[in-house]
Computed example of a mutant assay.
Amino acid sequence: MEFFTALCVFAAICVSGGVGFYLNKHLNAKRIGDATELATRIVEESRKEAQAQKKEILLQGQDDLFNQKRELEHEFKERERELKARDRKLQEQGERLEEKLEKATEKEHELLSVEKDLSKKERKLAELEESLNERIDEQERRLQEVSGLTAEEARQRLFAEIESRTRHEAAKMMRLIEAEARETADRKAKEIIACSIQRYAGDYVGEHTVTAVTLPSEDMKGRIIGREGRNIRALEAATGVDLIIDDTPETVILSAYSPLRRQVAKMALERLIQDGRIHPARIEDVVHKCEQELEVQIREVGEQATFDAGVHGIHPELVRYLGQLRYRTSFTQNVLQHSLEVSALCGMMAAELGMDIKKAKRAGLLHDIGKAVDHEVEGPHALIG
């Protein structure tokens, strides 16, 4: 019984082993078939994809070749057009050169013909000159035979006679020329001066040796005089100007020969009146400041005068003296204005006479420079200048 059971178990094991082997074999065969089928499908898809890529690459290559071909054809056409244009230009230049060559050839022929004519004329002139020389020699021989004089003696006698006649005529002509020159020079000088005066018209400024300062009220006169006259004495001492306070309403008169001092006094008095503080210490301070300001104004006026006259390169001290002329009068006229007018007139007359205009303007501007200091230096203003 046990044997039979064992046999049955063994048989069952064998059957199950055979069935398992068969199933395993069947599964392996199926897997192999599936793998083969998958490999075949992958290979097929790869082949199709490779063919598609190949076609795409071929198409891309054809497009590139077509584009390159088109670009080359376009470049070839452009170069062909350029070559044709160059050929046309060269052809036109060649035609122009041919025309010029033809004209040059024609001119050369003309010059050759003119040269031949000139050669013929030169030969004729040489022949005529030789013939004239022979005739002159013959005439001289005949004259010597008739007059009994040699050619040198006849020449000297002829020159002596011509000289005597010429001297008399030259003396008469010289007197006539001198008279005409005097008349012409006088008339020309008058014309130049009249023309210059007509071209320039200046305004005359009337100034005197006194200056009036207007006061805001009559009470200001007492403040200017000060206690026991100390303010007016301090102002006169600081400026060197005489203050005249009379019955003229609301007016103070400044009197001084020097126009600069009068100008300083006027500036100081106007500033003191405006400020209201009038006492000796304040007067000295204001006068000092006004003198400094006037010095600056004088230099500015002098520089402006040189600019208006068009005269440059003047020494700074002379520029200062020119500025001082602004406060100087002569024959009721402002001297600086007069100097500018004279400078302009000198320039115009120099232009009419064809002389140096710059030098003439410079001389005219500085001709009265001595009047700037004639109240400080003794002597005529011309010598001072």
Rank of each mutant, 00 (worst) to 15 (best):
residue 69 K to S: 10
residue 122 E to G: 06
residue 83 L to N: 11
residue 94 G to Q: 06
residue 108 E to W: 09
residue 87 D to W: 07
residue 91 Q to K: 08
residue 119 S to L: 02
residue 66 F to N: 15
residue 88 R to V: 02
residue 107 K to C: 01
residue 81 R to I: 06
residue 94 G to L: 00
residue 73 E to S: 02
residue 120 K to N: 13
residue 95 E to K: 08
residue 104 A to Q: 00
residue 81 R to F: 01
residue 113 S to P: 07
residue 120 K to L: 13
residue 104 A to M: 00
residue 122 E to Y: 03
residue 115 E to Q: 06
residue 93 Q to K: 02
residue 95 E to F: 04
residue 63 D to V: 15
residue 119 S to Q: 10
residue 91 Q to G: 03
residue 112 L to F: 04
residue 72 L to G: 01
residue 68 Q to K: 06
residue 83 L to R: 11
residue 95 E to S: 05
residue 106 E to V: 11
residue 119 S to C: 09
residue 87 D to L: 07
residue 102 E to C: 00
residue 82 E to K: 10
residue 95 E to P: 00
residue 79 R to A: 03
residue 122 E to N: 11
residue 106 E to C: 00
residue 108 E to S: 14
residue 86 R to E: 13
residue 65 L to W: 04
residue 109 H to E: 15
residue 85 A to I: 10
residue 63 D to Y: 03
residue 79 R to C: 01
residue 82 E to I: 06
residue 82 E to W: 09
residue 66 F to P: 04
residue 117 D to P: 02
residue 87 D to R: 11
residue 94 G to K: 11
residue 75 E to D: 12
residue 81 R to L: 07
residue 63 D to Q: 15
residue 114 V to R: 15
residue 67 N to I: 13
residue 93 Q to A: 03
residue 81 R to S: 10
residue 113 S to Y: 05
residue 102 E to L: 09
residue 115 E to H: 02
residue 118 L to F: 03
residue 98 E to K: 09
residue 118 L to M: 01
residue 117 D to G: 10
residue 75 E to L: 08
residue 113 S to H: 14
residue 108 E to M: 15
residue 116 K to H: 02
residue 120 K to W: 04
residue 65 L to S: 09
residue 117 D to W: 07
residue 99 E to P: 01
residue 107 K to T: 12
residue 74 H to L: 12
residue 75 E to R: 13
residue 116 K to P: 00
residue 62 Q to K: 15
residue 103 K to W: 05
residue 100 K to N: 07
residue 112 L to N: 06
residue 82 E to S: 05
residue 97 L to Y: 07
residue 68 Q to Y: 03
residue 90 L to H: 00
residue 116 K to I: 06
residue 120 K to P: 00
residue 99 E to T: 11
residue 119 S to K: 13
residue 104 A to V: 05
residue 110 E to Q: 05
residue 66 F to Y: 12
residue 73 E to M: 06
residue 74 H to A: 14
residue 76 F to Q: 14
residue 80 E to M: 11
residue 94 G to C: 01
residue 116 K to W: 09
residue 85 A to N: 07
residue 123 R to G: 04
residue 106 E to Q: 08
residue 82 E to H: 10
residue 70 R to L: 12
residue 68 Q to N: 08
residue 69 K to Q: 08
residue 79 R to I: 02
residue 75 E to Q: 02
residue 106 E to L: 10
residue 62 Q to D: 13
residue 87 D to H: 12
residue 89 K to I: 14
residue 93 Q to T: 14
residue 74 H to S: 14
residue 111 L to R: 03
residue 72 L to F: 08
residue 122 E to W: 01
residue 76 F to L: 14
residue 90 L to C: 09
